[in-house]
Amino acid sequence: MLKYLHNIRWNRVLYLSLFFLGVIAVIIVMSLVNRKDEQQVCREVNIFIEGKEAFIDQGDISALISKSYGHIVGKRLLDIPLEKIEKTLKKLPYVSKASVHLDMDGIMAINIAQREVVMRVINKNGREYYIDLNGLKVPTTLKYVPHVMIATGNIEEGYKNPLDSVNTSLVKDLFRVTQFIEKDELWNNQVVQVFVNNDRDIELVPRVGNQQLIIGTADSLEQKFSLLRTFYKEIIPKVGVDAYNKVNVKYAGQIICEKRGVWTFDDLHHPEKKIKNNTL
């Protein structure tokens, strides 16, 4: 018997014993953790809203969740439908992304990214809507009015459902023109509005001067705006900002200017002739 006990590798027995004790300890701890998880309640809800717009705020999100799912704080973590809450938030027309997370301490984190709108359309019937960076329609609201380009005039396309895509070539052109203007510092400062006239040509409403700047469609925008730049830098300094009633660059490579009143270039050098011509 003693000889048998002497042959036992006690160090291996010790390691095996420690191993099984460790497994038992882990099982006990996991059991306690699971029991705690089952009883753990939400202690706090933190809402983070990203984006330069202010269509929605934390109060709006909190009210929507409470209305749809009841009070979250105090509810067991297992009873909080995270996926459903996330889907509800993503359906909001002003939300581009939404995620909802819970940690082991009972804190819910809601992260929301707002849509960025680039143009406000007011069609010929007075129907209004925004268009976001992806070309989707976003409803207007009295709560917040972003500082974006406004498109008015002979625009037929209206608004039916949130996040509908733009479907007419005219509004698609307006969207392209607006994006072009926004990316150029000069035109972003000079153009205050886009307008569609009765010929369905797109016009630019300038900040300085009161002439009609007709560009037609969104084709060849680089060339058309280059011609307008030439008009402002080389022609305006010679004739004055109000010398022309219309400036048309809709035709490739041409600047067609319609004079305001009766005058000639010779009048610019002889003001007394200009007075005489205008009197006649």
Rank of each mutant, 00 (worst) to 15 (best):
I110R: 03
D201H: 09
N111C: 04
Q40L: 14
K84H: 11
G253W: 09
R176C: 01
Y232H: 10
P81W: 01
N46P: 02
G135A: 06
T178Y: 02
V41Y: 00
A54R: 13
D267A: 05
F231L: 05
I72K: 01
L133M: 14
E258M: 14
V262D: 10
F19S: 09
N134R: 09
F225A: 08
V95N: 04
I155C: 06
L227A: 07
E203V: 07
M149R: 03
N277W: 01
K274E: 13
G70I: 02
K124F: 09
E53A: 15
G126H: 09
K36P: 00
M119T: 12
A252E: 15
S226M: 12
K84D: 14
G106M: 04
F180H: 08
Q223M: 15
I61Q: 01
Y69I: 04
V13N: 00
I24V: 11
I255T: 03
L133V: 15
N189A: 05
I72L: 15
D132W: 05
P162H: 02
E258R: 11
D199R: 15
K84V: 11
E272P: 06
V247R: 05
L174G: 01
K276T: 07
G22E: 01
S66W: 05
G261Y: 01
T152E: 07
S96G: 12
K87Y: 09
L77D: 04
F231D: 02
N189Y: 05
L64W: 01
I49E: 03
N189F: 07
K224G: 02
Y144K: 06
E234Y: 08
T140H: 02
I61H: 00
G216C: 05
K160I: 10
H6M: 10
D105L: 13
R9M: 00
N125S: 14
